[in-house]
């Protein structure tokens, strides 16, 4: 052993070699040992360190052994490098957004169906949401970290060659698209209106038809059915608004309010059993067992809640996309041209 080195150098070299594959490790250890000894000699020759402190100073100047090793190994100390970062981020976002709401929603629904409705439900659902989210993120990151480390062709920037054809279709609705959307919304509302009115007046006014019962409770005509008809008129107004002004933030806000105005009373009416006509319910219940009678309203409510939620979120997403396009100065010009 040369003067000036103790087992400190050996410990440093051992620590640095640890993160390297065995076949690289031996050569690296020799290199590093040589480098440290030369550094110590240089410190002694220049008088920068005393013979007692030279080794310590040289190792301190060299820094964290794992970082030194990372530089030698040509492996930057990062989990996912620039080559895979974009793919990792895209896949992670898509997977989280598609899986977490679906699993959490299913779990929530299952609890309602099993009748485990208590305050602890919020905590349990929150736990499921977090667990699924973290689990997905963790394993996704592990997979990408492995790919990043061991994938061949380190020179390739992208796993899949990119072409301009890959550009996302911004789906700026043309004037025709918007007109089609307006007409279809209005037509759908008209059909809905006709069905509600016919259910109420059809069977009684045009002669009583056997086996045809009103679906909705006629008692609702005192307040709730007119209320829903007003909402339908507001929906029509919203459709005209979006046709003229496009997806804007005020429209998205109004859309959320309207979704709540539909969903909250509808859920409340189903829960209190005031929604359907008595004869209709009995007709149904006669063909269902006890479980079915319990599950059916829950599924109906879940459908209403999911529908309202999707509608509200879709409105916000569309407004955000339009807003981003306009903030880039692209919105008006492109939509005017199309």
């Amino acid at each position: 052993m040369t003067i000036g080195t103790t087992d400190l150098t050996a410990r440093y070299v051992l620590e640095a070699s640890r993160s390297l594959p065995r076949r690289q490790g031996r050569e690296f250890a020799r290199d590093l040992d040589e480098r440290i000894r030369d550094e110590i000699d240089a410190r002694l020759a220049s008088g920068a360190s005393t013979p007692e402190s030279a080794e310590f100073d040289a190792l301190a100047a060299l820094g964290d052994p794992s970082r030194v090793a990372a530089r030698y190994a040509d492996r930057p100390p990062m989990l996912i490098g620039p080559r895979w970062y974009a793919s990792w981020k895209r896949v992670l976002i898509i997977t989280e957004w598609s899986t977490v709401p679906a699993v959490t929603g299913a779990y929530l629904l299952a609890q309602f169906i099993e009748g485990e409705v208590d305050p602890g439900m919020i905590g349990r659902t929150w736990f499921v949401l977090l667990t699924v989210g973290i689990y997905l993120a963790f394993w996704m990151t592990v997979v990408f970290a492995v790919i990043d480390r061991y994938s061949p062709e380190p020179g390739e920037e992208n796993a899949v060659a990119w072409s301009p054809a890959n550009l996302r279709d911004p789906a700026i609705p043309s004037r025709t698209d918007r007109r089609v959307r307006l007409i279809s919304t209005l037509a759908w509302l008209a059909v809905l209106l006709a069905v509600v009115l016919w259910l109420q007046f059809g069977p009684s006014r045009w002669g009583h038809l056997d086996g045809i019962l009103p679906v909705l409770d006629p008692a609702l005509w005192s307040f709730w059915l007119p209320y829903f008809l007003v909402l339908a008129a507001l929906e029509a107004a919203m459709a005209v608004w979006v046709y003229r002004a496009g997806f804007t933030w005020p429209w998205a806000a109004a859309n959320i309010v309207l979704a709540l105005a539909w969903a909250v009373p509808a859920v409340w009416l189903i829960v209190t059993g005031a929604m359907f006509a008595p004869g209709f319910v009995e007709l149904f219940e006669a063909n269902l067992d006890a479980d079915g009678q319990q599950v059916l309203p829950i599924l109906l409510i879940a459908g209403i809640v999911a529908g309202a939620l999707a509608d509200a979120i879709l409105g916000v997403v569309r407004a955000a996309r339009t807003g981003r396009r306009e903030s880039l100065g692209l919105g008006r010009a492109t939509s005017a041209a199309s």
Partner: peptide, 28 residues
């Protein structure tokens, strides 16, 4: 030549290079 001598001679010539850069570069 060996690593440390190279480092010294390059720096003496005015081609300043850090040991942390040079040693990994030689290996590469």
């Amino acid at each position: 030549d060996y690593g440390y001598a190279l480092l010294e001679s390059l720096n003496a010539l005015g081609i300043t290079v850090d040991a942390n850069t040079l040693y990994p570069l030689l290996r590469r």
